[in-house]
């Protein structure tokens, strides 16, 4: 019977209570720490300087024409601008809304911006807003985000109104021009795409991951 009646205070109980209490006090007194896991500065710098974050407009056009299911274009301009014009299949996440949080304190767009499947390509009118979006996401260690170099301005210069190459231009330049003409027809003229891409050097499998941007078309900044 006596087993059922522990002495109220045993030494080991006191010891355990003190340990738990000290651990609890420790948790209250330790300085607040930054819970956001950020990419460290050096890694960030390397990523910013690398061209791997960029897609040229030609590469984006090619992925669109090939119907690359992994491509997710993200327009970071305002909803009004997005309404007026956007690239096919693009979704609109205005830069101001990019890191907004829902009622649970989680990033509202985290499912889109931080995932393992799609290739997110930010674009804006030029490079500034898309690069900001990329920088914010990369600092938060969000994965698989890229930038369309030159934005919509370069899209119009290269895809919609391509300049004819000089007479002395190389075969590559002529091929690129032919591809752009075909792409232009595809994006402006209802999607008939039979002639032009035959001569493009890379009209094969959809581009899955960015390997080396410097080699791509007329883009890379």
């Amino acid at each position: 019977m006596e087993d059922n009646k522990p002495r109220i205070i045993k030494k080991r109980y006191i010891f355990m209570s003190v340990v738990l209490l000290l651990a609890g006090i420790g948790l209250v007194t330790i300085p607040d720490f930054d819970k956001i896991k950020e990419t460290d500065a050096q890694e960030m710098l390397l990523k910013m300087m690398s061209h791997e974050k960029n897609f040229s407009t030609d590469e984006v056009a090619e992925m669109l024409i090939n119907g690359d299911p992994l491509l997710q274009l993200i327009d970071v301009r305002t909803p009004e601008e997005f309404e007026k014009f956007s690239l096919p299949g693009a979704i609109n996440i205005p830069l101001a809304d990019l890191l907004s949080k829902d009622e649970n304190g989680k990033y509202k767009w985290a499912d889109v911006l931080n995932q393992d499947v799609k290739t997110n390509v930010f674009y804006s009118d030029g490079d500034i807003y898309s690069t900001r979006a990329w920088t914010l996401c990369t600092r938060l260690k969000f994965k698989h985000n890229y930038i369309m170099s030159g934005g919509l301005n370069r899209w119009f210069e290269t895809i919609i109104m391509p300049k004819a190459p000089e007479v002395s231009a190389s075969v590559e330049e002529v091929n690129l021009y032919q591809f752009r003409l075909g792409a232009r027809q595809y994006f402006l003229g209802g999607g008939v795409m039979e002639t032009a891409p035959a001569s493009t050097p890379a009209a094969t499998a959809p581009v899955k991951k960015k390997a080396n941007a410097s080699g791509g078309g007329g883009g890379g900044c």
């Binding site: 109220i8 209570s17 738990l20 209490l21 651990a23 609890g24 948790l27």
Partner: peptide
């Protein structure tokens, strides 16, 4: 979160003391 854990620890220890008294 730290404050919550601390409060819970306090509550646990106090409850252990009083349940021991009840049990006695």
């Amino acid at each position: 979160a730290g404050m919550f854990v601390f409060i819970l620890v306090l509550f646990a220890i106090v409850s252990f003391y009083f349940t021991a008294r009840i049990q006695r």
